[in-house]
Computed example of a mutant assay.
Amino acid sequence: MKKCAFLSMDSLDGYECYDHLLFDPLAERGWSAEEVSWRNGQVDWNRFDVVLIRSPWDYQQDPQKFFRVLQEIDRSSAILENTLELVEWNIDKTYLRDLQQEGIEIVPSLWKDRFDSRDWDSFFSGLSAEEIIIKPTISAGAEDTFRLRKSEGEKYAEQLSGIFSRRPFIVQPFMPSVVSEGEFSLFYFGNTYSHTILKTPKKNDFRVQEEFGGQLQKIEAGEQLLATGRQILELIEPDPLYTRIDLVRTSNHAFALMELELIEPSLYFNMDSASPRRFAAVFDRWMR
């Protein structure tokens, strides 16, 4: 039996994780899988054939240490997926600028190295927005993410200064369709399209994650949505084993890229009963 480690965190209490649904389909193909915390400094990575980055959802608290762990895995005999090269590119949201330069429509964005309250008005004028979203360029799970109106600048100035005094962040217009329609997530295993879900926030919220009360719905993706996803997928180098593409509808009825998730995205195996075996089949071919 070949061994696969699912890189996780010390405890997943309070999180919704569905990777256990892969255990049986992988076992059927000769793979044993176990969850291993990235913070466990005693792990011999050489005892695994493959390490899949799956649910280390606290890595943003110490991204430098996290990356050092990935480098250690990469130096071992284990294969790291997705690759270290992809992680290095995808870990900072500035990757969105690279994709924009390749012709991908992204949610309009301003990039800042540190927060200065004197810039407040320019966030709104620069984006022609009534409401904005502010979040770190390295983040996960909507941590330190704010939805704000122009009138709230003085109220949040001290908090934003504390969080972003030495931490780069991104400013985007709040996209009303996130609330009115939801956020679309497309999943690919290798080059194989798997499934699509629509994530909607609970009432009076904008965060679509389950941990904040977001609702999930499996949908049949339309041609335009699939074409946008495929266009993005074909720009990713090297090829990823797993990809989640988060899109939101724009005012002109196109789809803008919200996030490209290549490190530790939930792949929502619970939303498509065929997806665990689909992943196991792609994974097994990939490793051969």
Rank of each mutant, 00 (worst) to 15 (best):
L7F: 07
L7K: 09
S11T: 12
S11N: 14
E16A: 12
E16F: 15
F23C: 05
A27F: 06
E28V: 03
R29Y: 03
G30F: 02
G30S: 04
E34D: 10
V36Q: 08
V36W: 02
W38Q: 09
N40L: 00
G41L: 07
Q42G: 00
W45S: 07
N46S: 13
Y59D: 13
R68H: 12
L70K: 07
Q71C: 15
R75P: 06
S76K: 09
S77G: 12
A78Q: 09
A78Y: 05
I79H: 13
N82D: 07
E85M: 03
E85K: 13
E85T: 13
V87L: 03
N90D: 08
R97N: 12
L99D: 04
E102P: 04
E102S: 15
I106P: 06
I106Q: 05
V107S: 04
S109E: 02
W111A: 08
D116N: 15
D116E: 14
F123G: 11
L127N: 07
P136T: 00
T137V: 15
I138E: 08
S139G: 09
E143V: 12
R149Q: 14
G153P: 10
E154G: 10
E154W: 00
A157Q: 12
R167V: 03
P168K: 05
F174P: 11
S180W: 00
G182D: 08
S185K: 03
L186T: 02
L186A: 05
Y188D: 08
F189Y: 13
T192H: 13
T192P: 01
T196A: 07
K199V: 04
T200W: 00
K203Q: 15
N204I: 00
Q209P: 08
G213A: 06
G214F: 01
G222T: 03
T228S: 12
D239R: 14
L241M: 10
L247G: 12
L247H: 08
S251H: 13
A256H: 04
L262Q: 07
S266K: 06
L267A: 03
Y268W: 13
F269M: 10
N270E: 14
N270G: 06
N270L: 01
A274M: 10
R277T: 10
A281M: 02
D284H: 08
D284M: 01
